[in-house]
Structure formats: structure tokens, C-alpha cells
Nucleic acid binder design. Sequence first.
DNA 1: AAGGGAACTTCCGTGGAGCGGAAGGAAGGG
DNA 2: CCCTTCCTTCCGCTCCACGGAAGTTCCCTT
Lengths: 263, 263
Amino acid sequence: MERKEGRDQPNMLDKCLRILRAFDGGDQQLRLSDLARRTALPLSTVHRLVGGLVEHRLLAQDDGGYQLGIGLFELSGLVPVEQELRVAARPFLQDLFMATHETVHLGVREGADVVYVEKIHGHSDLGLPSRVGGRLPLGCTGIGKALLAFSSNEVRTEYLERPLRAITPHSIVDPARLERELAEIRATGLAFEREEATVGRECVAAPVLVQGVAVAAMSISVPVSAYRMPQLAAAVKTSALGLARQLRTGREHRRPPGGEMFG
Amino acid sequence: MERKEGRDQPNMLDKCLRILRAFDGGDQQLRLSDLARRTALPLSTVHRLVGGLVEHRLLAQDDGGYQLGIGLFELSGLVPVEQELRVAARPFLQDLFMATHETVHLGVREGADVVYVEKIHGHSDLGLPSRVGGRLPLGCTGIGKALLAFSSNEVRTEYLERPLRAITPHSIVDPARLERELAEIRATGLAFEREEATVGRECVAAPVLVQGVAVAAMSISVPVSAYRMPQLAAAVKTSALGLARQLRTGREHRRPPGGEMFG
DNA sequence: AAGGGAACTTCCGTGGAGCGGAAGGAAGGG
DNA sequence: CCCTTCCTTCCGCTCCACGGAAGTTCCCTT
């Protein structure tokens, strides 16, 4: 009998993570019965597991509900790739922000998404869908396109083979068009995005290249009306190059960024 | 938080967390046998658990070892207290950094420690022991003392009853002295720290007060020779007050619609 | 080439821990 | 006062997590 790969019985760890990830819907605080509903687990099971999670501070019991706990935050500070990258990148992003006073992002590729690892913005953060730790489809964002353009052929073709997700009416859904754009990005070292991630915003991104592969990318995001792309593009590219150099010298040899796609 | 009963037998969740926390020793990459050694768990057990952790991206299998995975990072982005606080605080820290060009921290209290949730620094980050997600004893840091001064009596007395940890020769170990200092901090709204956390560095911190209690504190850290404390103190206090006001007003309308865009 | 060691992977019988239905509180409110 | 909703506790059954042991790979030494 062939073993189905997709779904076995969820074990304890699976269930715990289902509980933790139940918070991704934007709700900060969930009650026990909410968790049971969202995870589709029996109430008594959730109750038991939640006890253990609270003990480890992965959850915090607030009056009338549970929240994700600070233990998660602490653990995340130890994640090496992001940690190293962020520490190195922060000053460069800082400079970029100070020079332009526009929202600045740093992101890495994770499967078919970009995951934002740093974000700097002023007092008014105009409803961007990005969030540190959040994901967006690669093809819909400047950072994502920069990452994709400078990934391995394998990764790129696999991404292009699947239907492209759109998150605004302007998001690219035609693989051929995206492929053309990626070629252009490879030629220029700059990725542009126009309202493909957020209506009313456009952005320019540059890859952070280590040995020809993008280990990260950074971007500046501005309202569409600004018409400042040329200067911003130069600034982003400069910062990205600076960070790349810093990463190269900072550590001599760590990990040639392979990694499988779509686990 | 009374944890009287010493856990007899670690369950699956305990073991998984022991594995994850095995990375807190500064090592980024650990091999299976390293993990088994550090966690004092049988090799085959670690092997099995690691499999599950990798599936959930809490661990990443690198050639020759394992690293903490990006899944942790993503989850941490959803931790509400820190998330809300950080988003609100970032612009203020930003301003503070731009005004002073010195290293800026934001921290919250967690038990007897301060946990840093944000840190902004220039290109030269002079070996400070702080790290986003990292902990230090409350009494050894400016932020910690600011937090402690404006915590409940309960918290404060409990902290003072236990022996004070020292991390430099200048760290305060006399409870009476610390108590006196806390009183002063309560009076002035400013906490100073002189080489108590890092030899050669001093810092000034101010609490972020919501309803009279410090929900966080921010600080500026400079080399001891700088003699710029008066101006820095004013700047820190101003920023902290600004953030406190922001938090108060932000909290009135629970959560502006935005949240998650497009699922 | 053979031997030794270290690290990783797979196997498998056993027992206890995880499981979840059900019943028992605890609030609220109509 | 009953009904609903939510949380907590209980308990017997089942099953899967457990880890010792054997197997495999790789590298280093002799």
C-alpha cells in the first residue's frame, strides 16, 4: 500500500504549531475555544497543549485569552541567517532611510515568497502589506523580483511554472512578461514594481549579491506620484552593493545559498 | 509564576524546545550529535524530533548540520506585544538615532531580565552584549533599571530579594544601593548606567509609561568618555514620552482595519 | 587494504503519555 | 431560573513516541 505523503495523523508538534499559527489571521488574542475552532482540534486537546506552550512562554495567558509569547521572540533572535544578515544590513538600511526618508525593506527568499526581515519607516507607515516576518509572493514585489532574477535557474523556472498569484489588479500574472522583466533586472541590477503589491505605491529594489546569487534584496517604497525613481534607484543600488561587500568580508565562507524550493 | 514541581519526564514539546534552545550558546550550526550532547537526549530521539522540526521550518538542515529555521522568525513577527510596541517605537528610535548617532535600544521586562526588542546602531557596533531577542539582568542595564523603577512593588521587592547578578565589575550587587537608585529614577524619570553592563560604555534610559507602569524603556549607549549625558538624557526622555503618548492614543481604537491584506 | 572510530540512519517491541469524549464548574444574560 | 458559552477536570483506551541496538556511511589511522 502506497503511503500517502501529504497527511498523516498530526502529532503533538504539528498540533502545537497549528495552535501557534492560528494567530496569523491578524488576531492578537484568541480564546481557548477560538483556538479549538481554528485548529479543528478537540477542545480538551487544545487545553492540554496550551498548558505546555504557556510554560515555555510560547504563549502568554492574558485575561480572557491567549497571545503569542515572548519566548518565540527570543528564539527568533537566534536564527542565524536572519540575525547575521540583519545586523550587517541595519546600518545600510539606516543610511538609506536617512538619505531618502522613505520606507525601506530588506527581504530574503523563502520558497515562493519573500520574507521581510527588516523594515524601516517614518512616523507614517502608509498601509503597506509588508511586516517584519511577513510573506508576500515573489513576483508581486520589487524585492521578490530582484531575488528571483538572481536565483538559480532551477528556482526561477519552478516559480514561473506555477500560476502567478496576484495581490493587486496590477500584479503580474503572465509568466512570459515576468520572465522578460527578470531578464531586464539581471541586466540592470535593479527591479521596479508599480502598484503590484500595493495600490498607490511603487518601489525600486536591488539584490544583495554574494557569488552571483541574491542572498537578500533591499528596496525603497514610495507613493506613485513621487517621480523620484532615478535617485532612489541609485541609492538602493549603492546600499545593496555596500551590504554585499560587508557580507563578503564579514565572513569568509559560510553557506553557498542553495536550499530546496517548495520543500 | 511558581514552578514548584520539577518536571519528572520531559514530554515531546519539552524536548523539541530543548533542541531549539541548544542554539543559544552562540553556535549557529550544530550537528545531530552536538544536539544530542547538549540536550542530553538519546541520539535516535533527537534524530526523530529534528525531522519534525525541519518539516515545520523551525530548523533548517544545512550541509553538515542544523540551524534554526526561518519559521521561528516568521512566528516571532506575530508576537503581539512586541510587534505592536516595535512598530510604534521604531520611528521614535529612528529619530533618536538620527539626532545622536549613538546606539539606541528598546527593551521590555521579562521576569528578572530585560529583553531587547529593538536596537539601532551605526556601522560600528562596539561589542555591546545586547542583541535583539537577547536578555540581560534588569539591575545591570539602564533600561532594566528604568523598567524596575516603574514596576509594581511586588516585582521590585521580589527582584531585590534575590542576589543581584553582576556582569561587569561595576554592576551593582548591593540591593540597598540599587533600591536607592531606583528611588532616584522614579523621581527624575531617568536611569543612568555606568559600565555596569559593558566596560567602557555608559548609558541613559527612560521608561515608557502607560498608566504609571513602564511597558518598555529606551536608552542611548555611548563610550564613557563622551560626556554628553545631559543632552542625551533630554533626547531619550523626549522620545520615551512621545512613544508613550503614541501607545496611549493608538490603543484607543483597537486595531485599525488594515491588518492582513488579501489573506 | 584493513581496522577503528565517529556520525548518522533505520528498525522495532514496549509502555506510558497523549488523546479526546464526557461530565463538571463558572459566568453571563435573557 | 434556565440556557448558552466557555473553561477545566477526569479517566480509560489506544497508539505512537521512545530509545537501545543494529546497520550504513565516511574518514582517519596504521
